[in-house]
Design a protein around this nucleic acid. Sequence first.
DNA 1: AGTAAATGTGAACAATTGCTCATATATTAT
DNA 2: ATAATATATGAGCAATTGTTCACATTTACT
Lengths: 204, 204
Amino acid sequence: MSSYTPRKKPTQARSRATFEAIIEAGAQLLVEDGFHNMTTNALAERAGVSIGSLYQYFPNKESIVASIIERFADRQFEILAGGLQEVITAPLAEVVHHLVAAMFEAKQAEPELNRVLVEQLPPIGQLDVMRDWTERACHLLEMALEARRDEVEVEDLEMAAFMMVTSCHGIMHSTLLDRPKLLDSEVLREHTARLILRYLGCQE
Amino acid sequence: MSSYTPRKKPTQARSRATFEAIIEAGAQLLVEDGFHNMTTNALAERAGVSIGSLYQYFPNKESIVASIIERFADRQFEILAGGLQEVITAPLAEVVHHLVAAMFEAKQAEPELNRVLVEQLPPIGQLDVMRDWTERACHLLEMALEARRDEVEVEDLEMAAFMMVTSCHGIMHSTLLDRPKLLDSEVLREHTARLILRYLGCQE
DNA sequence: AGTAAATGTGAACAATTGCTCATATATTAT
DNA sequence: ATAATATATGAGCAATTGTTCACATTTACT
């Protein structure tokens, strides 16, 4: 019976530190060696913790990565939400520009970890976390669109939000893999914003 | 010295059959068990071939998957190219609709294999093949745009092609993971076509 | 102080599996 | 027919590694 959730919740300060050390070391080794080449024994050593302790908190190797992913997704979402927070009352065009900026910012935060997770996450079986992330992001956007309904031509706002998030995601993803340098360019962001704005039927 | 390319080229008919059987069995097991859980011994058995023969043609497990991926990518590209072939002289709007249709068709062809490869390809290290695929697809599209330059508002056609391919890809990818049922819907295709057409500055 | 609970340790096990190699069979060439 | 080449076989090796468990140490509690 293998699970992806942690085994035991640390209560004392000491054990909380152990828990954190494991996750931190895990993120490091994931970046350095990839999921397959990262061994639990090496992880424990890097964390300065015995292998036994590791298995006291995590039922298996996968669950460690699951925790790493979960935290990562949360941080990513905060960047997005934070970026949109700045423009709660602004007109649609500005919202879209901030959206694009925030999405790109998230993509470029913790680039190494981002890369490993993007490249190796699926087989680890943590697709749910990403599904959830998309869901939350769409919901956030839908609300933003709702508040500016008069500026949006598209009827189905849920669909519109989905299109915005996923197309933007795809562009960034491919860029990261195919033309990483382009990710910094202002041009790409402008094109992405244009893509979204025109789709919504809004003048730039 | 591990390589991802096959080891020996089969010359006789008998060995060519062996080679094919290995690739076919590999694709099956990849779908059934995933990359990690598929063992080379099981693969050989499924192919009706001894494990020794397998290693006569492939230097390692990865290289088998590499060959599977390569063939898959070629088939995918043919679907795309075929779809565009039908509209070599048509106006832009029609081209885009065919593009979207072809992209969706490719995504839905061999759905199981598609899914496994999308989910497990990266760690196998065959990102190059995908990079290459995007490259080729972009080039194809750029030519199509070039021939209709007067209908396109965007200046940089290379960029435009990149945006079209990657956004479309992202939409399909996320849909496959998050809302697989939606992939069949006409609505999604219409929205995608709209997204692209408006971006290009073309009336529908 | 003394006890119970929480936390930490790491040697060693069990199981898996990618891959080799010595050998056998089939095909082609002379 | 005979030699030479190509192809096929599969038992078993070598190496890796995730995980456990019996025991030590630290903290919390009475």
